[in-house]
Design a protein around this nucleic acid. Structure first.
Ligand SMILES: [Mn+2]
Ligand SMILES: [Mn+2]
Ligand SMILES: [Zn+2]
Ligand SMILES: [Zn+2]
Lengths: 137, 137
DNA sequence: CTATTAATTTATAATCAATATAAATTAAAT
DNA sequence: ATTTAATTTATATTGATTATAAATTAATAG
């Protein structure tokens, strides 16, 4: 609670109960949730919560760099707490989004081309290990 | 004309006038167009064209690997003819999508983790060179 | 403390890209 | 020439997101 409150205050965001809970959820759950997943999970503990607030809060949090929006081919946007930058594997079968750590160094190269790079999104799309193994059972 | 006809036949796709024109447009224009951009551009030469056909055709073409769908944060999907694999820079200001060629070798690493990689999407998001220069004029 | 003002949350309506459905057209097969 | 299948087109529907306005909560001033 206090931890997330401080994080919000540091960024100049008023630490409301809803915002704290949403930030806490994202920091604790690395499942790259959608708005709906966040809403469903928090609804139990914050029964007054509205989906609009989830949208608004995610907008505020991402504007201040606390969370980031993933670029997927899914119809719904996926969000994650901003840990250290990493890549993703997106499974076409189970639709899981798996964190991938690779020492990507191309950011600097792109900067040298004259572009200002603010985010790097690396997505490997295919069939995940678990789903591959299930095919041969 | 004949060139695109052959490409379609090779993949077992019936080479209709609409499909040929859409494939031709994508092969000749490397602007990563949306459905709307393709429709607007071809509407002049194929006045009977419907937007539904553009959606359908892009579905068919991408299913057969002739075109690919980009993963962007845009509300509309962007498409491109399937040249050799490459990455993209997405400008937050002018919304252009610029091709970036980097010798990315992480595909194999992800495969070694047990995942089957079918596509690699690398996006650098920020402010492009042109827009950066315009800021200081 | 009470009144006033501003910020946030919530409820509701509107938007719009994408999909689903069905009718019309075209091509292929008998 | 008739039937059948595939494709295109027109139209309706869906569903995530955004916009708008009302309700609630917090902050400020007197
Ligand atoms: Mn992640
Ligand atoms: Mn490209
Ligand atoms: Zn999977
Ligand atoms: Zn630009």
């Amino acid at each position: 609670m206090e931890k997330y409150k401080r994080m919000l205050v540091e960024k100049g965001i008023k630490p409301t109960f809803q915002r704290i809970k949403i930030l806490e959820y994202l920091e604790k759950h690395h499942n790259h949730p959608t708005v709906d997943m966040i809403y469903s999970a928090l609804y139990k503990k914050v029964p007054t919560l509205s989906k609009t607030t989830v949208y608004n809060t995610l907008g505020v949090l991402s504007k201040h760099g606390l969370v980031s929006v993933l670029s997927t081919l899914d119809s719904e946007a996926h969000y994650e707490y901003n840990f250290n930058s990493h890549h993703h594997f997106i499974c076409k079968v189970c639709h899981r989004i798996i964190d991938i750590d690779v020492p990507c160094t191309f950011r600097q190269y792109v900067e040298e081309l004259g572009h200002k790079v603010e985010e790097v999104h690396g997505n490997f799309v295919g069939i995940c290990k678990d789903c591959m193994e299930k095919q041969y059972e």
